[in-house]
Nucleic acid binder design. Structure first.
Lengths: 208, 208
DNA sequence: ATGTGCATGTAATCAGTTACATGATTCC
DNA sequence: GGAATCATGTAACTGATTACATGCACAT
């Protein structure tokens, strides 16, 4: 249930519309938790009902948009959540399930799987690294706003926790990319071993 | 949707009842994908409807139990799935979302969070390592059955892909444990920095 | 005028969780 | 006789996905 909390955390920076929040789920928090707008709009209504956010209609041409801002109750909820020791969530390692059963694929197919994983982890790594550099330079628009509103003595912590997170994730993705490459090498190795074993059988026919 | 495929993969080893499968989701595949029996029983019915598995009633005392075995269509489905290049699933990094917003916690609370994560990653690491050792010795009961049914030249691959997976996951968990420890150190560092900054302000009062 | 971005929703469906419910078997 | 384990489900609910649907604003 991190959607709710992610929305609240985003709103600690500044009031935003559902559309703004959805965009943040594409760029900043989106690296950690993804959600489509079809989930965001109803959730904001629920947060409003619960008094954790407050909506104000902002004119936009002759139409209006709903800007949500966090309430004191919302800030209290963030403070509660951030401290709560969460029970670990159910394991969901789809990539690894498949990799564990690559015995059912041909060597070529298994290699293609590991190569696809490698590409994916590399791309993930690159996007984490890019976001990390942005954060380190306090370069994201949202971070700017966040820091402006915060006391100067809090600036260090605000940036440091986020960079720590993305450094960790970047490292993890880099490691996973190497793991996927090793997977390719493993397939090669298994293929060679099997070939030698077959050659041995052909050269030294059994006594049947 | 890895539940379906995990069930099929388990049934490639031997026919099993829903209860047997649920137990495997606690020990072997359970390290990669978890599911409660309330999800497994209906899914098996659906797999049966789709002709991917076949149920036979096995007497047990005066009651009967339903043993499911994989069909040729089921094996074909596994072969299709294992080769399919899956679009990467939505990002869901609940731990990291929280860690990114630890600015809203006190230093003590932030340390407690990172310590909890550390404990969790260490425990995860230990369980991966234990399972890895089992697999390397081909020691799990299911692996025994699997190997007995398979051609000798396939044994290497059957074991190798699974050990590769668990080696990767163990490494990942070890890295995450270190990251969490570094998180504790980061909180210490931020606390010291803030204390020095405050001391400086006290010693050098501003000209207001 | 036309396309791109801003803006907000609903509906149907699917996957996953938690709780409830029941009964047989086996071992002590 | 009682506890643990084997065995199989249903129901209510929550969370997440995908598709459908609409309309204004602004720049070219």
């Amino acid at each position: 249930m991190s959607l709710r909390e992610s929305l609240l955390c985003l709103l600690t920076a500044r009031p935003m519309t559902g559309y703004d929040l959805a965009k943040q789920f594409d760029v900043s928090v989106g690296h950690l938790w993804q959600a489509p707008h079809s989930q965001i709009y109803p959730e904001l209504r629920r947060l409003e009902e619960d008094g954790l956010v407050q909506a104000t209609d902002v004119p936009r041409g002759r139409a209006v948009k709903r800007a949500y801002s966090i309430t004191d109750a919302g800030r209290a909820e963030v403070a509660r959540w951030v401290v709560e020791i969460a029970p670990s969530s159910r394991v969901r390692e789809a990539d690894y399930v498949k990799a564990a059963f690559l015995e059912f694929a041909t060597p070529q197919q298994a290699r293609a799987q590991f190569r696809a994983l490698h590409d994916h982890y590399r791309a993930t790594h690159a996007s984490y690294e890019a976001h990390l550099r942005d954060l380190e330079a306090a370069g994201t628009a949202l971070m700017q706003t966040r820091l402006e509103a915060a006391a100067p003595e809090d600036h260090d912590a605000i940036v440091a926790f986020k960079t720590h997170v993305f450094r960790g994730l970047a490292q993890r993705a880099a490691m996973q990319a190497i793991w996927a490459e090793e997977g390719v090498a493993l397939v090669d190795h298994l293929e060679r071993r099997r070939a030698t074993a077959e050659a041995r059988r052909a050269g030294e026919p059994s006594g049947i």
